[in-house]
């Protein structure tokens, strides 16, 4: 009904080029994750709270909606495939980032309104889009609703940088041992403080910092490291040296 009615064209260029579609979906997934559950400055991990371990245990969902990153990605994927190729201006990659952002914002706006229960998915953990408006020192932090658009830059540039982030993730999986990988992901991706990681693993924060730094050096030395300074193109819109 209504929104789901337009069918997919089996000859859609993205359906006939599955490698490209997979790359695009990976970046859309990352875009939605970043928008729904951002990690912000001050050791604050966005609206995701109460995680029992560094890797997370359940698929987080937005309070009141039961909407998860995968739900938002499903909506975004439908919208992308329903977009008629002859109407496309620019690249599919940039369009995909724009759609992913919009779908994530739709999910955030709907959160907290009790539109859907979560009884049908009891394993999910509820988090709030309004959560954590105060920093660790009691200072006010921008809420999710206030900050989501301020981080947005050129979608094409964002696609490229997120693609590099995913390459970095894959490289870490390949080049680091399990312990170093866990620490690297916890600090670099999840935004845990070194002290928090140390407490979870029974190590000092200094030791965590050393392992993280060593892991970063290992990755930088790898020929496939995606963030090599020489290969970086200036992207003012996405470089936010806060």
């Amino acid at each position: 009904m209504g929104l789901s009615s337009p069918p997919f064209d089996p000859e859609h260029p993205l359906l006939t080029d599955r490698k490209r579609l997979d790359r695009i979906l990976d970046v859309m997934f990352a875009t939605i994750q970043k928008t729904l559950f951002p990690r912000r400055r001050g050791g604050v991990r966005g609206p995701v709270t109460g995680q029992s371990d560094l890797q997370g245990v359940a698929e987080p969902v937005l309070e009141g909606t039961g909407v998860s990153t995968e739900d938002a990605l499903a909506e975004a994927a439908r919208a992308l495939l329903q977009f008629r190729p002859d109407r496309l201006e620019g690249e599919w990659e940039a369009l995909a980032v724009r759609i992913a952002r919009n779908k994530a914002v739709d999910a955030l706006r709907a959160s907290g309104k009790g539109l859907r229960g979560t009884d049908h998915r009891p394993a999910l953990r509820l988090v709030s889009g309004d959560a954590e408006r105060e920093g660790p020192g009691g200072e006010r932090q921008p809420g999710v609703f206030e900050s989501i658009r301020s981080d947005w830059g050129d979608p094409e540039a964002e696609f490229l940088v997120l693609q590099d982030v995913l390459k970095l993730r894959d490289l870490a999986r390949e080049a680091l041992n399990d312990r170093d990988q866990e620490i690297f992901f916890a600090v670099h991706f999840h935004g845990y403080s070194r002290r928090e990681v140390g407490q979870r693993l029974g190590l000092t924060s200094q030791r965590i910092g050393q392992i993280y730094s060593k892991s970063l050096q290992t990755l930088e030395a790898h020929p496939d490291y995606p963030f090599k300074p020489a290969s970086r193109v200036e992207r003012p819109a996405t470089r936010r040296n806060r």
Partner: peptide, 17 residues
């Protein structure tokens, strides 16, 4: 700068998802 760009962009992406 590459480090800042890397960690800024990676924050929020779930590497286990």
């Amino acid at each position: 700068r590459a480090f800042i760009e890397s960690i800024t962009a990676a924050r929020g992406v779930d590497p286990y998802a």
